[in-house]
Design a protein around this nucleic acid. Sequence first.
DNA 1: TTGAAAGCGCTAACAC
DNA 2: GTGTTAGCGCTTTCAA
Lengths: 337, 337
Amino acid sequence: MAATLHDVARLAGVSIKTVSNVINDYPHIRPTTRERVEAAISELGYTPNLTARNLRSGRTGAIALAVPDLSLAYFAELAAEVIAAAEAAGVVVLVEQTGGDRDRELELLRSPRLKLTDGLIFSPLGMGQDDVAALDVAYPMVLLGERIFDGPTDHVTMRNIDAARAATEFLIAAGRRRIAVVGAHEGELIGSAALRLRGYVEALEAAGIPYDDDIVGYTTLWHRANGAETMREILARGVDFDAVFGLNDTLALGAMRVLQVEGRRVPDDVAVLGFDGLDEAEYSIPSLTTVDPGRDWIAKTAVATLLERIAGRADAEPRTLLADFQILQRESAPAVR
Amino acid sequence: MAATLHDVARLAGVSIKTVSNVINDYPHIRPTTRERVEAAISELGYTPNLTARNLRSGRTGAIALAVPDLSLAYFAELAAEVIAAAEAAGVVVLVEQTGGDRDRELELLRSPRLKLTDGLIFSPLGMGQDDVAALDVAYPMVLLGERIFDGPTDHVTMRNIDAARAATEFLIAAGRRRIAVVGAHEGELIGSAALRLRGYVEALEAAGIPYDDDIVGYTTLWHRANGAETMREILARGVDFDAVFGLNDTLALGAMRVLQVEGRRVPDDVAVLGFDGLDEAEYSIPSLTTVDPGRDWIAKTAVATLLERIAGRADAEPRTLLADFQILQRESAPAVR
DNA sequence: TTGAAAGCGCTAACAC
DNA sequence: GTGTTAGCGCTTTCAA
């Protein structure tokens, strides 16, 4: 059985309050008393029972992070950054996977398991604008992603439209005119896919290039296999194109593989550009030009914002915080053709 | 303020014990009483305070998973599987990153933050056999990996030597004789690198092929950049080789990129084989032949074993559980040259 | 079948 | 400076 405050107090010949004072660095303690207590603590190998402390204080020192799936590289890298930022603040992270399923996301928001934490960083994928009311929860929450806007909570996200527009403009400036898209979501109006497609369309319009649905590839999931499959579909249509904009890196990498297998030279015949700034995009063949949407900033800001809320800025208006993006120029899409 | 048992009891006109009975599905309750209590619960939106329950029961319903870094694909996929297995058992997972640093690993083992959980699944990378004593902790733990053997805890791991030997034999059977290695750790005797290298050497010896240090590439980290850099070093030596065994997939993918950039055809000139069975190995160009070391089984078994320990098999002897491996045959290393 | 009350280990008023 | 004590919200004997 682990030692308690009482055990330490008995051994040191003081009251539990004194021991508590020592542990919590209360300033006014006689040095000799402190020494006795510290000796007793190390002799017994005492560590405070955090559960008891939490019950008393109403805090747990943990936050929850809910993402669709850690085996998706984007969310793995996001989680790594969130955990690092939380650790720097002395907080641990409980990770939940929702599978991007709306029902599981809604269930999670009501789950008593969240009681183990002081707040939630939530990245939904299945919920939509209609579910905005479900976000009105009794605990501090920071929302990530682009499924829901104008919710009742702080929202940290990226400039999807602007970044996709800039990416498309980059391809146009490099002399590409027939820019295929991989990863659009059929009929979708919200979410990353829709916003990035909008940025793409805006850039085309600004350049006077007509939009052509024949070079837009639709899919549901954003796995590598989907990128490959969608690219094959576009190729099978027999249409002409000189660039591919993958709506994320994973799709772009899958598409790039198919292009090469089918004998297209990248970037000579077809330039390829992704979105997410994944580590692995730097090591594909050719290396992938991509948009870094500011994921690291998003992770740090989400943690900082959540901890502020937990610390008591409960009354303040919900804020939306937008990350800066940048294009990471690599081999798959050079600036000049 | 959230409702408590007392609030519910008062509203339902019963004692808190009765409410507690209802919540915990205690069988002998008069139906009318149960209804009254349930009505009160839903009227108040009561959910039990898990912290209080934990303090009482001594359990938290959470386990910790400590890995080097979630941005390493192997650990991200492992974490995804651990979290899924834990969720199926009704347990949540707190994820810690150690950076693979020995001091941080040792510190973690003593961290009071672990008090928030019932046990730990620990995948060390910096600790070694000399640190085995540090594993003798007061809480349930399951060890992963190959840094420490014969420790005082359950150990779930893979057949590194056998699997690496089988991988090398596969290349030999395919007619390769000069098999380079990427990712060896200089002077290391324990850990994945050392064990996999041993399997490689055993296979060479069994086939009567001399070991040649000139085609063994050393590195410290197992990032993609290290695989690329190590491959460049081997190429710079001007030695001859017809295959590359990457000690993990990430290294193999980095190496394969360099080979292709330098004009070697994969697999015609050089076959490439990895280790880990990562998802992405299926979508490289060419797709990567690799060893699946049984990661999914490891994750499920680690969770199940830890939960058994937590449930009270504390006395039982520590067990070592070994996963089955298999070679996933793809394009980068065909069975026949 | 239900109630009363102790206590899990800690913090923080409040006393001395 | 240090001790006493009342809870935090729950589970669990033990009685009724």
